[in-house]
Design a protein around this nucleic acid. Sequence first.
DNA 1: CGTGCACTTGATTGAAGTCAAGCGCTGTGG
DNA 2: CCACAGCGCTTGACTTCAATCAAGTGCACG
Lengths: 190, 190
Amino acid sequence: MLQDFISYTSAIYPVSEGLQQDLLARTEILELPRRTHVLRDGQRADHVWMVLSGLLRAYYLKDGLEICSSFMQEQHLIVSVNSFYNRQPGYEFIETLEDTVVARIHYDALQELYKKHLEFNYIVRVLTERYTMLSEERLFLLRKQTAEDRYLHLLNHDPELLQRVPLKYIASYLGMNLETLSRIRKKISG
Amino acid sequence: MLQDFISYTSAIYPVSEGLQQDLLARTEILELPRRTHVLRDGQRADHVWMVLSGLLRAYYLKDGLEICSSFMQEQHLIVSVNSFYNRQPGYEFIETLEDTVVARIHYDALQELYKKHLEFNYIVRVLTERYTMLSEERLFLLRKQTAEDRYLHLLNHDPELLQRVPLKYIASYLGMNLETLSRIRKKISG
DNA sequence: CGTGCACTTGATTGAAGTCAAGCGCTGTGG
DNA sequence: CCACAGCGCTTGACTTCAATCAAGTGCACG
């Protein structure tokens, strides 16, 4: 399954034998049971994660309440952006919602790869651009749309998530509370 | 002033003489009067822009109303992300709010630089990571905060913007309407 | 001058939040 | 094996924050 990642990146820029070996050598595979935290607030995020199978959520606390900032499904990359890039403790929690298998690579290993294999920067530049597109899309969605608009967008673009994730997390992801989401769903179905 | 950009990027990764020359050769400097559109909806964004002096805003139309998605000040990069990376017409407008000088580089020229100078990918990877941090910060801010929270954040983090930009644009940037912003400002000052 | 723009203020409405209760499962311990 | 505790979700009553509608002020500039 990590091989999928290699062939995926090869479509961006040819992955040399050397890079491939170094990448594999520095990657750890972890099998995590459901409800395992891989990051907590106050910790520094030292890894980039890739979901090979399963599902995770990222959230943070605001006035003691959990606000869900993203879900990561198969083939998604996970970076706790602020903490990882700035090398400082962050505010995010990341937790598996299902039994999950991830590949991870350490910040320091990644920096080595960037310096040793310049073409790896080409690949990660493109991956980061794609990540930015997703962030911008989420910004577009969150700004000035009604609660119903936001739910309908999710329903159209990622219906699978609605099957896999409890509605209370979906609600906070969409920036509304559980009761509001429940009423919207009732209105749409009825 | 473009030299500022070169030395800024040199701090990320050494810029070779060759890269520097190619970069300068492919960069155009434009002087734009106040109220000039550099991008309209339905157009494809073919350039990355860098603000050398002045100020611009990006916005889009939602139900006939302008929603302000960002402001770009000195040293900021401007990319209409969806349109530029996906090479398709976008929905954004970008307009100068003051007399402005920008440097721009064409998509195709950029791709050449990425292929010819692999180290340029190192630099742009880092710049893109920083851009992502900003997107994530805006996401964090927009989600589940009150109108007053959002205004106070801007007041603390970018007070200069409040001096340079009409409140109606600030309001839509903060996801509220002009009247609400006016009342919040009254409440805080009084 | 006067027209339009930037902003303020007031009255009212409406969307979503909060508080509270209840239903139907599932899983677990007595 | 049943009882009941807890979770996931729904529904109802009420509140609140911000949007909308509507004037009105001050000022720049053409």
